[in-house]
Amino acid sequence: MTSVEILYVGGPTSLITLGGVRLLTDPTFDAPGEYDLGSRTLVKKTGPAVRAADLAPVDAVLLSHDQHPDNLDTTGRTFLESAPLVLSTASAYDRIGAPVRALPAWEHTEVGGVRVTAVPALHGPKGSEPLVGEVTGFVLSGAGLPKVYVSGDNADLDLVREIADREGPVDVAVLFAGAARTPVVPDAPLTLTSERAAEAAVILGARHVVPLHFEHWGHFTQDGPTLTKAFAEAGLTERLHLPEPGETVRL
C-alpha cells in the first residue's frame, strides 16, 4: 500500500497527498487578526506556516464549510478562484458558486485516482444546525491507497459511528479538534474535545490520527498537550501524530 503525506499548514489547513493527488483542506492563509461576526469576534493568533502560492497547484479543495472565517478566510477565498475543483456543501455552492461543487453526504466523486466520499458532520451539539450552518466531512479511498477520514468541524460521535459502520475501518483519521467554543452555542463545544478525538479514533479503528484545527485561534479551549494527554490515557499514544506547522507527516 502506498503512503499518505499530510503537510500541516496551520489551523484547519493541510495538504493531503494521496496516490499523487493533492487535496487541500479548508484554506486559511490570512495573517493574525480579528474577524467581527456581529454576535462574536474570532481571533486568529498565528499565521500560516506555508504561503498559499507555495502550495499551488492542487487537484481539489476539500472545504468543510464556507461560513466561518476560521475555515475559509479572505486569502482562502482568493485561493478558491484558481482551484480546479472545490468539494463542499450545498450551502457553500449557493453562496460561492463555481468552482464549488456540492457533494451530498454519502455521494462520491473521483479526483485522479482518489474517490472522495462526502460524509455527514455536525458543527456542535444536536439541534445546533440552525445556529452553526451546514458542514461536511470526507472519506478518501482508492485501489492500493490508505483510507483517510477528514472530519471537518464535526463534534458528533454518533455520526462518527455511522461513518465507521459504512466506511470503516480507516487507516488515517484527520480529526478537527480543539473543543472550540463561542457565544453562538455557549454550553457545548463546536468541535471534538481531546477526549472525544481519542474515542473517535477507537470507533474508526484508525491506525493513525493527525489532528487539525486545535490551535492558532482564540476560541479553542484545548490544544496539543491536552490531545497528547487524552490519547495517552486511552492507550493510544502510538496512533497520535502532532506535526509542527510546516511539517509533513508520512504515514
Rank of each mutant, 00 (worst) to 15 (best):
G47F: 09
G47K: 14
P48Y: 14
P48Q: 13
A49I: 05
A49L: 07
A49V: 12
A49D: 09
A49R: 07
V50S: 07
V50I: 12
V50D: 05
V50W: 06
V50Y: 12
R51F: 01
A52I: 00
A52H: 08
A52K: 11
D54A: 15
D54H: 09
D54Q: 14
L55R: 12
A56Y: 07
V58N: 10
V58K: 03
V58W: 10
V58I: 13
V58F: 07
D59Y: 04
D59K: 00
A60I: 04
A60C: 13
A60K: 01
V61H: 02
L62H: 06
L62W: 00
L62M: 10
L62D: 15
L63Q: 08
S64M: 04
S64T: 04
H65F: 01
H65P: 01
H65V: 03
D66L: 09
D66A: 13
D66M: 08
D66Q: 10
D66K: 02
Q67W: 07
H68G: 03
H68N: 13
H68M: 14
P69W: 00
P69D: 12
D70H: 01
D70M: 08
D70P: 10
N71I: 09
L72N: 08
D73A: 07
D73K: 08
T75R: 15
T75H: 14
T75W: 04
G76F: 04
R77C: 04
R77M: 09
R77D: 02
F79M: 12
E81I: 13
E81N: 07
S82Y: 00
S82F: 00
A83D: 00
A83R: 00
A83Q: 03
A83T: 06
P84F: 03
P84V: 01
P84A: 09
P84G: 06
P84Q: 02
L85M: 07
L85C: 03
L85G: 05
V86K: 04
V86Q: 06
V86D: 11
L87R: 06
L87Q: 11
L87I: 03
L87H: 08
T89D: 07
T89W: 01
T89M: 03
T89A: 01
T89C: 02
T89N: 03
A90R: 15
A90I: 05
A90F: 02
A90Y: 02
S91P: 03
S91M: 00
A92Q: 09
A92Y: 00
Y93D: 04
Y93N: 03
Y93H: 15
D94H: 07
D94L: 06
D94V: 00
R95Y: 11
R95D: 15
R95T: 12
I96S: 10
I96C: 06
I96T: 13
G97P: 13
G97L: 04
P99V: 05
P99K: 13
V100I: 05
A102C: 05
L103S: 10
P104M: 05
P104F: 01
P104D: 01
A105D: 15
W106L: 07
W106Q: 03
W106D: 09
E107Q: 14
E107P: 02
E107C: 02
E107G: 02
E107V: 02
E107L: 03
